[in-house]
Amino acid sequence: MVAYWIFALVSLLMVLAALVAVTNRNLVRATMGLVLVLFGNAVLFVLLEAYFLAVAQVIIYIGAIAILIVFAIMLTRHVGDAWGPAFHRAWAWAVVVAGGLAVGLLFWIAHWPAADGKAKSPVDPQYTKLLGKALVAPDGYVIPFEVASALLLAALIGAIYVAWGGRRVKGPYPQRSEEKEA
């Protein structure tokens, strides 16, 4: 029963935090909203008995991604405290599309028979260990795993390159006045 309450509370909090994250014009606060959502997600993972993923969620999302966003905001100093409008002019279209999406999804979930089903079996207590083995097993998931690693590495190098790129000073060599003499 506690689980129900926790679920309800956390879900509500997550939706509210998500709304903060997408509406607040202060990007730091929006990021805080995002962090809250991410944290709520981790809680839900625990409820779903996916402990490894819950830990990964906290470490990767909150520990890395959210921090990265905060850093990015701080690096571009006055973006963080910009006081312009939060949305662009065509935001109404976004509402329409998002609304349509919401209606569609809700409809779909409501009409899906499996939506109110229960879990068929409990989770193996050794599950995390098995998962680890499956990830590196040749007949298991080693290829997706490696592809993901390669993707990460590529993204890392690309990110460094892109962020580093503009540092060179462009334009002609500035001449000193003494060299202009004959």
Binding site: A18, T23, H88, A90, W91, A94, V95, V97, A98, L105
Partner: peptide, 9 residues
């Protein structure tokens, strides 16, 4: 949906 709205608007 909330995320989509944020990304769009």
């Amino acid at each position: 949906v909330i995320g989509a709205f944020g990304a769009l608007a």
